[in-house]
């Protein structure tokens, strides 16, 4: 029961969506299954939040190392959750002014919008921007032009980086037919044009092969899961 039930549900859920794609009569089943999937995915967020709360409350209770930061996590989590669920500072929608809860929870000026605007956005954007330093640092340490492959990788990255900047374009702007008519045959060597060629030819070819490979891999993995060959998601007991 602990294993067979989930296996049957997995197979039924997956094959309904596959069959629904090919049979117009069954397309509603597919749409229904997709909505159910969305609902369970949203509930999974609640599960994730609950688990986060449980973990950090335990750290606080155990006075584990750095428990103060767990306190910050719990306070910021509960505050955001409260103002979002209760719609603090949200005016009713202009269409239904007599319904107090009819306003959008992300309405400008609301407490949830405030946290999104002044905490979530700056924190996530800065966290990702920090990667600029680490990518550059890692590249400096790891990239060495030791063989043809490394030279190709480095050279392409260099051309792409330069070709998309003002300085890069200015560097090869002298390859201009107005300067010398013979340059008309060499305008393809200008950095901005080289960037376009690399992206439209080699990058397209490589990405297509990678996408074909990924698609085949996903199809194989999905079939293994649906047919019950891969049961790792069920755990051991």
């Amino acid at each position: 029961m602990k294993q067979t039930g989930p296996l049957l549900i997995t197979a039924a859920g997956g094959f309904v969506l596959i069959v629904a794609y090919f049979i117009p009569f069954a397309q509603n089943w597919g749409e229904l299954a997709a909505i159910w999937f969305d609902i369970l995915a949203a509930v999974a967020f609640i599960l994730g939040g609950g688990n986060l709360l449980k973990t950090h409350l335990k750290r606080i209770s155990d006075r584990a190392r750095g428990w103060g930061y767990s306190g910050v996590v719990v306070v910021s989590f509960l505050a955001t959750l409260f103002v979002g669920l209760v719609k603090v500072g949200v005016n009713p929608s202009a269409q239904f002014p007599d319904f107090a809860w009819s306003g959008q929870y992300r309405q400008m000026g609301s407490a949830f919008w405030y946290l999104f605007q002044y905490a979530f956005t700056p924190l996530t954007a800065t966290m990702f921007s920090l990667l600029a330093f680490y990518i550059a640092s890692a590249a400096f340490r790891a990239f060495r032009a030791k063989n043809v492959e490394a030279v190709l990788l480095l050279g392409t990255a260099f051309i792409i980086l330069l070709g998309r900047t003002f300085a890069g374009v200015a560097l090869t702007s002298w390859i201009d037919p107005d300067v010398w008519a013979g340059f008309a045959y060499f305008t393809g060597l200008r950095l901005e044009n080289l960037t376009v060629y690399i992206m439209s030819v080699f990058n397209t070819a490589g990405n297509r092969a990678i996408m074909i490979g990924i698609a085949l891999g996903i199809v194989a993995t999905s079939l293994k899961v649906l047919l019950g060959i891969d049961r790792s998601y069920l755990g051991k007991d």
Binding site: I35, L52, V72, V73, F77, L78, T80, Y105, L115, L123
Partner: peptide
């Protein structure tokens, strides 16, 4: 560490709130 803790707490609750109002309530 404080900023990181705030990010973890706010983003977990943010996605929960979105899931609640955009999916659970209507669907």
């Amino acid at each position: 560490k404080v900023a990181e803790a705030v990010l973890v707490g706010v983003s977990a609750a943010y996605w929960m709130v979105i899931g609640f109002w955009d999916v659970i309530v209507p669907n």
